[in-house]
């Protein structure tokens, strides 16, 4: 996650964007879109939804940038917008029940880190990355939206408990509790990869 220097850069870009500098805002989009993509995609498991949501998130951030007072880091503010909009979207999707979830992502099969960890986890079998990806997605989808949000931000995005608490507007204790129960649930679904 962004360190102190990054935050300083963000502050300057935000200040320029608040004065109407669209290029400065574009730099913020370039900087944060990959991270936010990961957040939203893990939450929705649907590429089209992720794309549309991400456009909406940055559009809303652009419209609201003048309201940002700098009480928190910019990325905390941006993550709050992203998380709230994604959770709202998921609630609406549950009511509609029409969206389909993507089965797999095709981009990571050959990643050495993935191959290594799947081999460590299950050395007796040939590495089956597709199966692992499918299981990961399925396991994450069994979590409630709130629990999945915490797992996504902590385990995938690398945010700290306190930061997640600020983003979700809950206490640090609530974050730890949600993470604990989510991990317990995930252990059951991923037992074949855990030794």
């Amino acid at each position: 996650m962004p360190d102190e220097n990054h935050n300083e850069n963000d502050q300057e870009l935000v200040r320029l964007a608040q004065e109407g500098d669209t290029a400065a805002f574009d730099r913020l989009v370039v900087k944060f879109s990959p991270k936010l993509y990961g957040l939203v995609y893990t939450m929705t498991s649907n590429r089209e939804d992720t794309h549309d949501l991400l456009q909406d998130i940055f559009a809303k951030a652009y419209r609201s940038i003048k309201k940002f007072r700098g009480k928190s880091a910019f990325y905390t503010w941006l993550y709050s917008i992203a998380t709230n909009m994604t959770l709202n979207h998921l609630r609406k999707r549950k009511r509609r029940q029409t969206s389909s979830l993507d089965n797999l992502d095709s981009g990571i099969q050959n990643d050495p880190a993935v191959i290594d960890i799947t081999h460590q986890a299950n050395p007796r079998h040939q590495t089956n990355v597709n199966e692992l990806q499918k299981k990961l997605n399925e396991a994450l989808q069994t979590l409630s939206d709130d629990h999945r949000a915490v797992v996504t931000m902590f385990d995938i995005q690398g945010l700290r408990h306190a930061e997640i608490g600020k983003i979700l507007n809950v206490s640090e204790g609530t974050v730890r509790s949600r993470l604990y129960y989510a991990h317990k649930q995930l252990q059951v679904h991923l037992s074949e990869f855990i030794h």
Partner: peptide, 14 residues
């Protein structure tokens, strides 16, 4: 171990 497995999702990019 769960954390490490879930962290693999980091490699999913468009």
């Amino acid at each position: 171990q769960v954390s490490k497995l879930i962290a693999l999702k980091n490699y999913e990019q468009p």
